[in-house]
Design a protein around this nucleic acid. Structure first.
Lengths: 202, 202
DNA sequence: CAAACAACTGGACCGTGGTCCGCTTAGTAC
DNA sequence: GTACTAAGCGGACCACGGTCCAGTTGTTTG
């Protein structure tokens, strides 16, 4: 419960064996290093296993899938991010009006994307994005902000829709293919949020 | 040029050899049949090749990738759809105000998704979605409608953002995991469009 | 019809994500 | 220390998307 990013496996309650813990650490640091060195897209699971000095079976037993491993590597940063928007300073944290918090949330996501898009892309691969606990937290946060700003809208659906605008694949496309810079994307997000909330009562 | 859904290969101008044409047809009809029978997600490229009575090499030479094959199978429907929103009757085609056309566009996409989500998911796999000609057409269409309704906004960016709300992966997640029905999704889309265009001058 | 060539063909081959299962080892009870 | 057991281990194995290339075949030219 303390770390929302571990195994897909159901928590058994039994403590982790020491060799298992050691291997998990080995894997995580090897993965972190390789992802950094070669770019997440160019690292195979076999390489990670070898660099960590464990068998492939162990790697998959611990992390279940490539996407899951990428997510685990990101989990520290993600935990900090969650802290910021749940209990941190305004405008990200409580205190600012919901529209501003939402704008800040998206801008923070875009900043993360700008530095870690490869890793985030790997973490979103397949259905992984939506099944990942982090997504649920983001969704809940956005839903609550929307409700706070505007009780009338279908906040749940709108939250997923807004988050779709912050997906790694879209981000990469907008940057690489369409050549849009980060400021433009941030401006677009602010505008989208403004409009999504401006429609109240019209 | 007549069919925007063929090979990723550059058009050479030379006519297609008759055996090649025959094989393309074989492949397409085998793929169509298998996708229908077993669901697009459960059909491998080897199966398609075998059912079509051609080698795997031929299959990939013709269609380049799994995503591309799925797109080719959808191309007929897509062509009809493009016809409808470019030259068809209102509210999809020209004649209706842009907001209504946009609403109708999304609803039509959602209808297509409801019946062909598996195929569309396959067609969107990887970067395929954004590199596919059909996406460019949709993007252009939405961009023009946005500009028509509101010259001030960053129409290009907003178009991609709106289209992200109509992706197959999101659709499947909203339906299967979140349990939202088609009408709710359509309502959400209409609302999103209304808000996206209601912000003018605020 | 023959010659010549480009396009096409098919299946062996490869890399990668992911699974399986017989063996090993850390922890526990006595 | 010994015996027992469940958790953990690792590498052989599998499926699938995609590539390669040596051989074949349709088409064109004279």
């Amino acid at each position: 419960m303390s770390d929302p990013f571990e195994l897909p496996v159901v928590e058994t309650g039994t403590a982790e064996r020491t060799d298992a813990a050691r291997n998990r650490e080995r894997i995580l640091s090897a993965a972190r290093r390789l992802f950094e060195e070669k770019g997440a897209g160019c690292v195979t699971m076999d390489e990670v296993a070898e660099a960590a000095g464990v068998g492939k079976g162990t790697l998959f037993r611990r992390f279940g899938s490539r996407a899951s491993l990428a997510a685990a590597v990101l989990s520290e940063r993600e935990r900090g991010f969650q802290e910021s928007f749940i209990r941190g300073e305004p405008p990200l944290g409580p205190g600012a009006p919901p529209e501003e918090r939402l704008a800040a949330f998206g801008e923070a996501m875009l900043d993360t994307l700008a530095t870690h898009y490869e890793l985030l892309l790997a973490a979103e691969h397949g259905p992984a994005r939506y099944t990942h606990p982090a997504y649920a937290v983001h969704r809940l946060h956005v839903t609550l902000l929307l409700r706070e700003a505007d009780a009338e809208c279908d906040a749940e659906l709108l939250a997923d829709t807004l988050l779709a605008a912050l997906g790694a694949e879209l981000f990469i496309y907008l940057r690489e293919v369409r050549g849009m810079d980060l400021d433009r994307l941030k401006g677009g997000w602010r505008e989208t949020v403004r409009r999504a909330l401006a429609g109240v009562g019209v």
